[in-house]
């Protein structure tokens, strides 16, 4: 069995247009590494250079936001369904301030 991964429009350039791809891995990090071996560049769109999940995407395992499951360390089992969506956010605020809030949010999620 494999893990089904739903790809948003904006990332389908990495999957040859495919809306759903399959991969394997025990954690989200493993799964993304596996996907990247066949869909080059996908991982870089989801994971920052610092090795954290990118702020501009939401990743879900089944019905849970992975930010509440350990982010890249989130455990994944065969038969799970992973959904990637572009985070929808913005506003009049300057980017630096927004990034600071984002960092705060990630820290808050990690502390939970």
């Amino acid at each position: 069995m494999a893990i089904e991964v739903r790809i948003p429009t904006i990332l389908r350039s990495h999957t040859g247009g495919a809306k759903v791809v399959e991969g394997t891995g025990d954690t989200l990090a493993d799964l993304l590494a596996d996907l990247d071996s066949r869909h080059a560049g996908l991982k870089a769109r989801l994971v920052t250079d610092a090795g954290a999940l990118h702020r501009f995407v939401n990743v879900y395992v089944n019905d849970e936001d992975v930010r509440f499951l350990g982010a890249l360390d989130a455990k994944i089992n065969d038969g799970d369904s992973v959904t990637i969506l572009p985070a929808v956010a913005g506003g009049a605020f300057g980017f630096a301030a927004a990034a600071a809030i984002a960092q705060h949010g990630v820290a808050a999620a990690a502390a939970r």
């Binding site: 948003p8 429009t9 904006i10 501009f56 572009p86 913005g90 506003g91 009049a92 605020f93 980017f95």
Partner: peptide
């Protein structure tokens, strides 16, 4: 008008 934040996050090209 879209702010820099709006542009950074815009993830639905359609």
């Amino acid at each position: 008008y879209p702010s820099r934040t709006d542009i950074s996050f815009a993830g639905e090209p359609g």
